[in-house]
Amino acid sequence: MSDLKSVSSSPHIRDKATTSFIMLMVVIALLPATVFGVIQFKLPALSLILVSVATCVLTEYLYEKLMHRKITIGDFSAVVTGLLLALNLPPTLPWWIAVIGSVFAILVVKQLFGGLGQNFMNPALGARCFLLISFTARMTSFAYDGVTGPTPLAVLKSGGGVNTLDMVIGRIPGTIGETSVIAIMIGAIFLILMGIIDLRIPGTYLVTFVVFLIIFGGHGFDMNYITAQLAGGGLMLGAWFMATDYVTSPITKTGQIVYGILLGVLTGVFRLFGPSAEGVSYAIIISNLLVPLIERITLPKAFGKGGKRA
């Protein structure tokens, strides 16, 4: 009983999980998608992954060294950023563009805003959007089995038919890590079992997106169309690995649900009514920017300041 009555300064709730442990678990969870991407796209994919991860780690080390800050590359956050960025790149992309994106992710999005925990958007997605704007043609050129062609989402948007089984397995053109839903879900299940993420954000995101498709997609409850939209592009990778980023997502339970709904609506708007067949990256970035507002609205009020008695 004496332990229950002890008084100390905040934080009052502590967890044994460290930043390095969480980031290492994310790296392990990304391995299935990474391995599948390397098997499918061969040496070009492996080269981009190594270049992106190495550049992110080196950029973080050099910046902190020059600024006389504590070296934090041991927390694996730079590794996660480099790996996520690489998995969001087409395998045919020149290595030097991956270097530019990696430097932008760590230096501009992360370090210039104070480092891990202070960045206002997901560094990997911020860099991907920067590269999409700067190198549009190269970032939207995809190949599979040596043949360059449109992604299934582009075919779907133009009114064509797609093979949803190939999309789930990953036998399609796309970025290095987004093609195989099976590989992504293996990693997602691992994170859930390890207690790193829960279903609140990705579940709300995906359900909202499906409802949006049924209402505005023009196909009704067409399971083939819905499955193709879920399996195509970066939706699954984004929903499970980037929308759930601790730093750029809400901490309140209600806020996480609002955040997931916003993600689903924005992704639906971009995919159905925008010029591009994709839209996950921009949906997550915009939602990241709105997180402070979401938390301000959904943060419970303390009792005595308008809060309700439990």
Rank of each mutant, 00 (worst) to 15 (best):
K5Y: 09
V7N: 09
S8I: 01
S10R: 04
S10T: 11
P11M: 08
P11E: 07
H12L: 15
I13Q: 12
R14W: 09
R14T: 14
D15M: 13
K16E: 13
S20H: 10
F21K: 09
F21L: 13
M25N: 11
I28Y: 05
L30V: 05
L30E: 01
P32F: 08
A33N: 08
T34K: 04
F36R: 11
V38W: 09
V38G: 07
Q40F: 04
F41K: 06
L43N: 06
A45D: 06
V51T: 14
V51G: 03
V53E: 08
V53H: 04
C56Q: 01
C56L: 07
Y61A: 09
L62M: 07
K65L: 13
H68C: 11
H68E: 14
R69A: 11
K70Q: 13
K70D: 14
I71F: 04
T72F: 01
I73N: 08
I73V: 15
V79W: 00
G82Y: 06
L89E: 02
T92P: 00
L93N: 04
P94S: 07
I97M: 10
I97W: 02
I97L: 14
A98V: 07
V99D: 02
I100Q: 00
V103H: 01
A105H: 00
I106H: 04
V109I: 15
V109G: 00
G114L: 04
G114A: 08
G117N: 11
Q118Y: 11
N119R: 07
N119T: 10
N119Q: 13
P123E: 01
A124F: 02
L125V: 14
G126P: 02
A127M: 06
L131W: 05
F135L: 07
A137T: 15
T140L: 15
S141M: 15
G149C: 13
T151Q: 11
T151D: 12
T151C: 11
L153S: 04
K157M: 12
G160C: 04
V162Q: 07
D166A: 15
V168A: 11
I169T: 09
E178T: 03
T179Q: 08
S180A: 10
I182S: 02
I184D: 00
M185H: 02
I186D: 01
G187V: 02
I189Q: 01
L193M: 08
L193K: 11
L193A: 09
M194E: 10
M194T: 08
I197H: 01
I197V: 08
I197D: 03
P202A: 10
P202N: 08
T204Y: 05
T204N: 09
V210L: 10
F216Q: 02
G217H: 06
G218R: 08
H219M: 10
H219C: 08
G220F: 10
D222V: 03
A228K: 05
A231V: 12
L235G: 00
L235W: 03
T244A: 12
I251H: 13
K253I: 13
G255N: 12
G255L: 14
V258Q: 06
Y259D: 11
I261E: 05
G264P: 13
V265K: 04
T267D: 05
V269K: 04
F270M: 05
F270E: 00
F270Q: 02
G274V: 03
P275L: 11
P275N: 14
S276Q: 12
E278C: 04
I285K: 05
N288W: 06
L293T: 13
I297L: 15
T298N: 13
T298A: 14
L299P: 00
L299T: 15
K305H: 14
G306E: 13
